[in-house]
Design a protein around this nucleic acid. Structure first.
Length: 244
DNA sequence: TTGTGTTTTATTGCCTCC
DNA sequence: GGAGGCAATAAAACACAA
């Protein structure tokens, strides 16, 4: 509805002085509701912007100025607050929803990456087993294996461990003893974790049980998994850590 | 013109505060 | 207990498609 049109549909209270006069209501009270004029609404809106609640004095002033009953002004503010609240709820909902959608996308992406990395670990595990069989000890059992353990401690959702089944360590698990995170140094080999920016599984301390040569087909003594962090020192992302 | 959905004005009942 | 706020609701006014 345009202003002009609305103005045409003039309130039955054509004269403000009549409006404010209670006798007007007593004698000529309209049975039907009348909309406020655009001018009245405009001033009410302006007042609402300044203060969304009415002091009694302000209410009386506005009513007089607009040619309305104080009660009408109070009702208008009441309804206006209700409308504002509804709009605010809608805005809050929109903000929350877009935040949720964004998180969901992020979650899905990380989940897929997690699956990829796991299958890559499985693939490497199989390769290790195959190599063990080729140069097999008498037992015929693979001497090493990669183990994937799910954990919330890792940003990837899991950690990889190398089990040395031939070692005489406790429980048959010769997990490298390194306290806490370690920076990855040069001279190590890495298995790239495809599609996960900045992450990789590193294999260092390569040795061959066959001849001691480093032919990149050696066994892992440590597995590192790293996630990229914004700050780097000396070309190595900070915050690299190793899970023994 | 009419049916229907939306917006605006007003009322009611309950609650809180002084 | 009265004043004022809020939620729920009624009902008139309005918009708009068919």
């Amino acid at each position: 509805m345009g202003i002009e049109e609305a103005t045409k549909r003039q309130s039955i209270f054509s004269y403000p002085e009549d409006l404010y006069n209670e006798e007007y209501y007593d004698d000529q009270a309209p049975e039907k509701k009348r909309r406020l004029t655009p001018e009245q609404v405009h001033l009410l809106e302006k007042s609402f912007e300044v203060e969304n609640k009415l002091e009694p004095e302000k209410k009386t002033q506005l009513a007089k100025k607009l040619g309305m009953q104080p009660r009408q002004v109070a009702v208008w503010f009441q309804n206006r607050r209700a409308r504002w609240k509804t709009k605010q709820l809608e805005r809050d909902y929109d903000v929350l929803k877009s935040s949720y959608d964004s998180l969901l996308l992020s979650y899905d992406s990380i989940k897929k990456e997690n699956e990829k990395l796991k299958s890559e670990v499985n693939f490497l595990n199989e390769k290790l087993s195959a190599k063990d069989v080729a140069g097999a000890p008498a037992s015929g059992q693979s001497s090493h294996a990669l183990q994937v353990e799910e954990t919330r401690d890792s940003p990837l959702g899991f950690v990889v461990k190398v089990e040395d089944r031939l070692s005489s360590g406790s429980g048959g698990s010769a997990v490298v003893d390194e306290d806490g995170p370690q920076l990855v140094d040069s001279g190590h080999s890495y298995f790239h974790c495809n599609d996960y920016p900045g992450s990789l599984v590193a294999v260092n301390g390569l040795q061959s049980e066959d001849d001691g040569s480093d032919d990149s087909r050696g066994y892992c003594s440590e597995i590192f998994a790293a996630a990229e962090e914004p700050h780097q020192e000396g070309g190595v992302p900070m915050g690299w850590w190793a899970w023994p």
